[in-house]
Every structure is written in C-alpha cells, then in structure tokens.
Nucleic acid binder design. Sequence first.
DNA 1: TTTATGATTCGATAATTCTGGAATATAGGA
DNA 2: TCCTATATTCCAGAATTATCGAATCATAAA
Lengths: 109, 109
Amino acid sequence: MENNIAVAALSALAHGGRLAVFRLLVQAGLEGLPAGEIARSLGVPANTMSTHLAILSHAGLATFERHSRFVVYRANIDSLRELMVFLAKDCCQGREDLCGQLIIDLSCS
Amino acid sequence: MENNIAVAALSALAHGGRLAVFRLLVQAGLEGLPAGEIARSLGVPANTMSTHLAILSHAGLATFERHSRFVVYRANIDSLRELMVFLAKDCCQGREDLCGQLIIDLSCS
DNA sequence: TTTATGATTCGATAATTCTGGAATATAGGA
DNA sequence: TCCTATATTCCAGAATTATCGAATCATAAA
C-alpha cells in the first residue's frame, strides 16, 4: 500500500461519522446499503452523507454500484486489511523484535 | 480502545509528516529521539515539530521523557496494536465470517 | 548571574475540511 | 411527457488544522 493511499484511508476513518458509516457497511455485509438508507440511519443529510461516502470510496474503503435508482455501498474489507498491514510494516523496518508486540487478537469477542 | 481515542490516533497518523515521525521513532526503538533531532532529521522547524509531537503523544502513539535539556520521544507500539485491534473489531461485530479476511501477514518482509 | 541550548507556547495567517441549502443529474412510473 | 424518488454536485460559510516567526520556558554551564 502506497504512503499517500494509506494517509487517505487514515483520514477517511479519522472522523466519527465516517467511522460509523464504515461500521454500518461492515454489518450490512455483502448486500451493502443504499446511500439514502445510510444517511437516514445515521441522521445525516443526504448531501453531506454523499460527501462522506465519496471520501470513503476514494480511499478504497468502500465500493459502490448503481441499482436502478439506488447506489449501493459496500465496505471493502480487503482495503482495511491492507491498511493494517501498512501500519504493521511501520514497526518491522529492520526491527523484527518490535514486530512481536503487534500480534493482535482477532477472535471476535 | 474508546472511539474518540481511536479517532485521535487515526487523525494523528493521517498526516504524511507525522507518519514519518512515527516511523522514525519506531526505528529509534527504546532509546527514542530528542525533539530537536527529529525536527532536524525531517527538515521541519522545531516549533512545528513540537506541535506534531504533542499531537502524537496526545493520541497515545508516543511517549516522552525529559532528560536534562532534552525531551526524548519514543513510539508507543502498544498503542498502535490497540488501534489495529480497534479496526479489526469493526469487522467482527456479529460477523465472524468477515473477520477471516483480516488475517494479516506480520512477517517482516 | 549571565549566557547558551533545547523545547514549548503564543499568535497570526494560510490552507483545508466540514456542513448543508439549492440546484442538477439519473432512473422509474403515471 | 410530467412527476416522483434517489443521489450527487455546486457553492458558500463555519470550523478546524497546518505552519512558522517570535516570545517564553527549562536546564545547564560559564
């Protein structure tokens, strides 16, 4: 993952509202959610939400697909994984000893 | 990790310059680096760097300790781990199936 | 006490991001 | 065609963040 893309992804998630959107999209799974429902669900005006969704998809954290009048958004889990690898790599540059501290618990507790 | 702290950590890293600082601190390891050396190393004015360092330590990503006239900063790897866990958890809320896609390769290649 | 060095804080400007009303697409139905 | 529903783009003001010169603080040495 390139540096600039990582910064874009971090910026996209560094916003409470967009973090909530991402979580909602993850919960929605493969079916995804139309923009309007996301906006309604989080109590945000449609145009504001449209901006947030554009930021998320620009950063690669979400994908979208038009279905007749609806634009369905989906979380891009793969992109989140790349971001996590990027962050982990920061701690592995010639210092594998520190890498050990990064073992994270992925059990869904 | 609390939501607001996670957002603070994401914001802190969502800046090319601060990302570079964090990387430098990780490379420096347990010894850490004094503020001035970090500033010189990255070609940033001391006062600007001081602001960046404050943001990083506020977000928990760095710690500091005064040694006579020097203020030595260190990366807080543990905090990065917590951030990664936080991000991973977003994908595990009742959807353990998606969690599988998050297995990341921590081998330091 | 005076001077020098390292670091932070203050204050002001520039730049960016956030937000939402209004206008504009886009697609389907009457 | 005309109307409605869904979504985005345009635009402008508000809010926040970024940057850095100057002043100040903190520590140590002369």
